[in-house]
């Protein structure tokens, strides 16, 4: 089973990586479609938990890709998924490195950015909503999600607090 899933894992993340304009989280809904809906590698809640695990660890948000790879095809899956997600885009960045002085501050680029950034933020918000609905079994997870939204939005404190309190509330009330 692991052999069979490795190839779709790699091609799937290759495609996602080239779509991931605006960073890793923006493609989370598409990742969810691939992992949960198309291939049935895990259910909604498992997906939300894997994402949470990646958030609880330091490092780029994109590490969730490695966790999904691990879940599907073990250590080989982790390395393959991360390489597929980061390899081609890193090569692209390498090629573009010289352009940066020409591109930065150009007027057309500011116009482009101003038009695209709201869409990228919308995609990130949609990712959060999908994750929240995956985690929402009963009223307490919904309350935790809402409180965590407010905390991260309205304060400058480390988001780690949210995860710690979420774990404590879950551990006490969700059993």
């Amino acid at each position: 089973m692991e052999e069979d899933d490795l190839w779709p894992l790699v091609t799937g993340f290759l495609a996602l990586s080239l779509m991931s304009v605006g960073g890793g989280i923006a493609v989370l809904p598409e990742m969810h479609r691939m992992v949960v809906e198309n291939h049935g590698w895990m259910d909604d809640l498992a997906f939300a938990k894997r994402y949470a695990l990646a958030q609880a660890a330091p490092g780029p948000n994109i590490m969730v890709v490695g966790l999904i790879g691990w879940h599907v095809a073990g250590p080989v899956g982790m390395v393959a998924a991360m390489a597929a997600m980061c390899g081609p885009t890193s090569a692209l960045a390498y090629g573009f490195a010289r352009l940066r002085r020409r591109v930065a501050g150009a007027r057309w680029m500011r116009v482009f950015e101003r038009g695209m950034v709201p869409i990228a933020i919308g995609l990130i918000a949609a990712s959060g909503l999908l994750l929240a609905s995956g985690a929402a079994e009963g009223w307490l997870p919904i309350a935790i999600s809402a409180a965590s939204t407010l905390f991260v939005w309205r304060t400058r404190r480390s988001p780690l607090w949210v995860l710690v309190v979420g774990a404590a509330l879950g551990g006490v009330f969700l059993r």
Binding site: A48, A125, L131, G134, A135, L140, P141, S145, W153
Partner: peptide, 25 residues
């Protein structure tokens, strides 16, 4: 149960981050 609590909190983190970015924009 701990992981379910963390999952709910992490989901809220993403929404909160999007709100923060949106209002800063």
């Amino acid at each position: 149960p701990f992981m379910e609590g963390v999952a709910a909190a992490a989901a809220g983190m993403v929404i909160g981050m999007a709100l923060k970015m949106a209002f800063n924009l």
